[in-house]
Amino acid sequence: MEKQIVIDGNLINDIPSFYGELNRVFMTGEDWTLGNSLDAFNDLLYGGFGAIESNEPVTLVWKQMEKSRLALGYEVTKQYYEEKLLPDSPFDKEHFREKLDALNKGEGQTYFDILLEIIAEHPNITLRPIH
């Protein structure tokens, strides 16, 4: 039987609470937690630590997914990009300026859209939204 992991969208209000939920669900039994990083989320889905063994088939049940979509939408994404553009930020400012410009034009991805894209890149993960 395929492993099932349940994310509770009612607990997601912003980017830090999204990673808090991931740590609650995926990292039980680990002596460390994921940072607030899209790369960390991607690595988590490959498995080998946390709740997923390497490339094992998993159904990711996302309760209240629409609430998460709204919580990780335009405003949160805009703030995320703006933080990457702060003067002391070590990130590629040109890259994030382009992302912010696209978002402001209504052409860019929200943080939620990026998460869905990452999930889709993992053939072992089946996403099952529950509204």
Rank of each mutant, 00 (worst) to 15 (best):
N124P: 08
L103F: 11
D39G: 13
R24A: 11
D14H: 01
L103K: 06
T126W: 06
P16C: 12
E98Y: 12
D39S: 15
I12K: 10
W62Y: 10
E94C: 03
P57H: 12
P123G: 00
L70W: 05
P90D: 10
E107R: 02
E98F: 09
L38Q: 11
N42A: 02
E21H: 11
N104C: 08
L116D: 03
L127A: 14
E53A: 02
D14E: 06
I52E: 00
N42V: 01
G29E: 07
E82F: 02
Y111M: 05
L70D: 01
P123K: 10
L72A: 08
Q4S: 06
Y19I: 06
V61D: 09
P90N: 04
I5S: 07
Q109S: 15
G20L: 09
G9D: 00
L11S: 09
G20N: 13
L100K: 10
L38R: 04
I130M: 04
F96C: 00
D43T: 14
K105D: 15
I114L: 15
N124L: 01
I15M: 07
P123V: 04
P16W: 02
H122E: 01
Y74G: 04
L86V: 10
L34F: 05
L115N: 10
E56P: 05
A71F: 03
L70P: 07
M65C: 08
M65H: 08
F91E: 13
D31G: 11
T59Y: 05
L72S: 04
D101A: 15
S17V: 14
Q109G: 06
L86C: 10
H95S: 07
E98H: 14
Y19V: 09
N124S: 01
N124R: 06
G73R: 03
I52N: 00
I7Q: 06
R97F: 02
M1R: 13
N104E: 12
V61G: 06
G50V: 07
D14N: 11
I130A: 09
T59Q: 14
L34N: 06
I125C: 11
Y80H: 09
S37P: 01
I118S: 09
E75M: 03
L70I: 13
P90G: 04
I125H: 11
A40P: 00
F26Q: 08
P87C: 12
F91P: 00
D92G: 05
M65S: 07
A51N: 02
L116G: 05
E30S: 14
K105N: 11
Y46Q: 13
N36K: 02
L85V: 06
P57C: 01
W32K: 11
S68T: 13
P129E: 15
N55Q: 15
P90R: 02
F96Q: 07
K67H: 10
S54F: 15
I125R: 11
S37K: 00
D113S: 09
T126P: 01
N104V: 06
Y46I: 08
F49N: 00
E53L: 03
T77F: 01
I118M: 12
I125T: 12
H95C: 05
G108Y: 01
F96V: 02
E94I: 03
V6F: 09
P90H: 05
K99P: 02
L72W: 12
K78Y: 02
D14Q: 03
G9S: 03
A102T: 07
L85K: 05
K63R: 11
